[in-house]
């Protein structure tokens, strides 16, 4: 199941971009000709994200036509500072 390897790439990519910040949601775009099954990716996501700063984050899949397979955006907990 290649969705596992692709989801690992996703989690690595998000971790690189968010360096330890807590992630609430991750939005990806998955084309209908990309070769990736969104349900399989969602199944893998919870497993791969466990014990990373992404643990518990929601995976939002935007399905589209074509072979696109991309990380769209990341929703992060805003870092508060005391006034």
């Amino acid at each position: 199941m290649h969705e596992l390897a692709i989801t690992e790439s996703l989690v690595d990519l998000v971790a690189e971009r968010t360096v330890g910040r807590r992630v609430v949601a991750v939005t990806v775009r998955v084309g209908d000709a990309s070769g990736v099954v969104p349900e399989a990716m969602a199944f893998c996501f919870d497993v791969v994200a466990a014990e990373t700063p992404l643990a518990g984050a929601a995976l939002v899949v935007e399905e589209c036509a074509g072979d696109d397979l991309a990380l769209v955006s990341v929703e992060l907990v805003r870092e508060e500072s005391c006034a």
């Binding site: 790439s9 990519l13 397979l69 991309a70 955006s73 990341v74 805003r78 508060e80």
Partner: peptide, 19 residues
């Protein structure tokens, strides 16, 4: 304590970019 607020960061990168 402030209510936890979130922000959305646009990334737009192919998932297989590293490969």
């Amino acid at each position: 304590p402030a209510t936890e607020t979130t922000e959305t960061v646009l990334v737009e990168e192919r998932l297989l970019a590293k490969n």
